[in-house]
Design a protein around this nucleic acid. Structure first.
Lengths: 201, 201
DNA sequence: TTGGACTGAATGGCAATTCAGTCACCGGGA
DNA sequence: TCCCGGTGACTGAATTGCCATTCAGTCCAA
């Protein structure tokens, strides 16, 4: 990651935002650096004052945005009183609301996350695991309070939950119109599914 | 899709197998056509006798392999007697067993499926939806038999299930060693989670 | 006047695609 | 049986276009 030049204030942030938008629209490999540059309102070369190369831009955008999401999730959870189920619902909600509040970011994350965790094998994706760890904590707490069943590996449940959420988010962002009601109904469905299961009682 | 030349018998199949392997290892964009060619034991140009271009090779490999998986899933389900839960377990099992029986294919599907459904927007991914439809049927049947709860959109449950499965499969294939016992334990965990839910009873 | 952020045209390398040949095989004629 | 010409699958070196990256200059603020 290149040093931050002093002048220009928000250039780095503008480039990151443009990168998320452009990568979301065309995918990392089809997006041209010059597209990102013009979306950010800077010259092609300027990008290389802030980032080592195109890969570094991808990683930086990913880390930066995941950091934001992690902080937001932690904050919202800390202000959420109540049962583990209530907290889980909050996780679902925050994740799926991305489809409305930041569709570009949602698309960027759902589509590029897979690739980064694979194709860039040396990159261990710490920020993503941090996100999972937050949810793991919620489940562990619910288990120790006797609210959630104890015979379920928290890590496995979290991973499954994340997979389902991510698939749902992808399906949402690929639609034309996403309303808050639609998101809410998906949150409710996933909550019922994961908390109470498919079996008729 | 190019016509099939008469000679050479299995060349098309060898190229598809090599493509799956190569794309799994390096990702579609980092894989070179010449790598696929040498993995298949043919000359670079030969690939263009069977496929229009690199994109067509990706799509063809994807369709061909999904077709195989669809047929296998349908067949295994049709020979599975018993409850919807038993059939669902079969779906989980078949999906995760890919990590052992065809790791290349598993990696190819988990990593490239996302991209194809996005970046190639014009391509509606019929084979993938066919796969989902098979599972949707299992759930509908369970609902109409009163075995599974009726207040759950089958399509949403299926999508969530698929997301969880896919994430699990990805986590499996990125490991060094995958044993049948490990896969079986994941199948059992997901079955408990989706059928009975997280809540303590 | 100077330092350094910024620019964007030019460069260079890479890899998809092409195509002029090569070669194996086949059918027919001697 | 042997030879010959034709057919078309196959080859892989050469072509070509693309785009990430560079860097010689510009310009502004101090």
């Amino acid at each position: 990651m290149a040093d931050t030049p002093k002048r220009g204030g928000d250039k780095r942030e503008r480039i990151l935002a443009a990168a998320v938008k452009t990568f979301a629209k065309s995918g990392f490999y089809n997006a041209k650096v010059s597209e990102v540059a013009s979306a950010a309102g800077v010259a092609d070369g300027t990008i290389y004052l802030y980032f080592k190369n195109k890969d570094d831009l991808l990683i930086s955008a990913f880390e930066d945005r995941m950091q934001m999401l992690n902080e937001r999730l932690r904050q919202e959870l800390s202000r959420t009183e109540g049962s583990a189920v209530t907290k889980l619902r909050k996780c679902l909600q925050l994740h799926l609301l991305l489809a409305i509040e930041a569709p570009d970011l949602a698309e960027f994350i759902t589509v590029e996350l897979r690739q980064s965790s694979k194709f860039i094998k040396e990159y261990d994706n710490q920020k993503f695991h941090e996100y999972l760890a937050i949810v793991v904590e919620v489940i562990k707490e619910g288990q120790s309070r006797g609210e959630l069943r104890g015979d379920m590996e928290p890590w496995i449940a979290t991973r499954a939950l994340f997979g389902a959420l991510d698939e749902m988010l992808l399906a949402l962002v690929l639609r034309k119109e996403v309303t808050p009601q639609l998101v809410e109904s998906r949150v409710a469905a996933l909550e019922r599914l994961f908390v109470d299961g498919l079996r008729q009682r």
